[in-house]
Write a protein that binds this DNA or RNA. Structure first.
Ligand SMILES: [Mn+2]
Ligand SMILES: [Mn+2]
Ligand SMILES: [Zn+2]
Ligand SMILES: [Zn+2]
Lengths: 142, 142
DNA sequence: TCAATAGTTTAGAATTATTATAATGTAGTT
DNA sequence: AACTACATTATAATAATTCTAAACTATTGA
């Protein structure tokens, strides 16, 4: 989804009814310069603030999954205890800051192309993703 | 922990009391030819079968985390909905079979060394791990 | 040897993330 | 406007994990 588009149209195109909640969610998610990473709770807060009224948690879950199914969002597995989503749905790699729990995209130029030499019979590779865990570099530690 | 060792000694060495539950858990985990991947529920079943009596879930969680803290187990993040652990605590990469939800180690020879060219000021890299998602290759799909 | 102590196990309750339910509401169509 | 299909909501249910506090046990050292 390009930025600044009419989300009413966009939602219709993918067969999702453009309800008030969905249009607001799309604006929060896609009407911005850069892609970003979020948790469901982040998103609930952002949408509620934008709408100036509460949105139900269930709606946010439902709509996130609807957008994910349509290919507009991607789930990122980093932490077994919480789901992170990404508005950047292209294949890409991440830094995960273990101090702040923030995700940062790696640029293509930051890493060489990865070549997997093994293949498992009857199985095809769906994705190859790298997770680089970083944490504050306190040189004052034993 | 090498295989076939005396886990009573091993546990003492790392400062964990060698209780019946822990010794049995260690035998299930480490007294085998190859390292393996498991979920907490897998492990509860395996230990209960070995001991021929039930072991409390809380004990398994506690002990897994104790062993993890001592560096004998590693948690693997693949799926935000369940924790996987690995008795192979060395840095290594994985295949994840999306059909069976099985984890398989990649050998060193299966992939080139990964070089991260970006660095984040004040942060050091803790790990660089690759996850290769695979699924059955049905060429008979539209 | 055995009591004191510190650490461990346990059942069950609590917490958290997520999903299901079912009643109510709304968008799209005629 | 009326009909219908789909969406939203509050709330309940579920599942993974952690907490609690009482009972238990390994270790120590008198
Ligand atoms: Mn999910
Ligand atoms: Mn964990
Ligand atoms: Zn990303
Ligand atoms: Zn592994």
């Amino acid at each position: 989804m390009p930025k600044n588009c009419n989300f009413i149209e966009k939602l219709r195109e993918v067969g999702l009814r453009p309800t008030k909640q969905r249009v607001n969610m799309c604006e929060v998610l896609f009407n911005r310069e850069k892609t970003f990473h979020f948790t469901i709770n982040d998103l609930v807060k952002m949408i509620s603030e934008k709408m100036n009224e509460k949105i139900s948690l269930a709606t946010v879950y439902n709509t996130v999954h609807a957008l994910e199914k349509k290919g507009y969002l991607k789930e990122i597995s980093i932490d077994s205890h919480k789901s992170y989503f990404d508005t950047n749905t292209l294949a890409h790699h991440h830094f995960f800051d273990e101090d702040t729990h923030e995700l940062i995209d790696l640029n293509e130029s930051d890493i060489d192309k990865i070549n997997i030499r093994k293949n498992i019979t009857g199985k095809k590779i769906n994705s190859v993703e790298v997770l680089v865990r970083v944490a504050s570099d306190n040189q004052n530690q034993k």
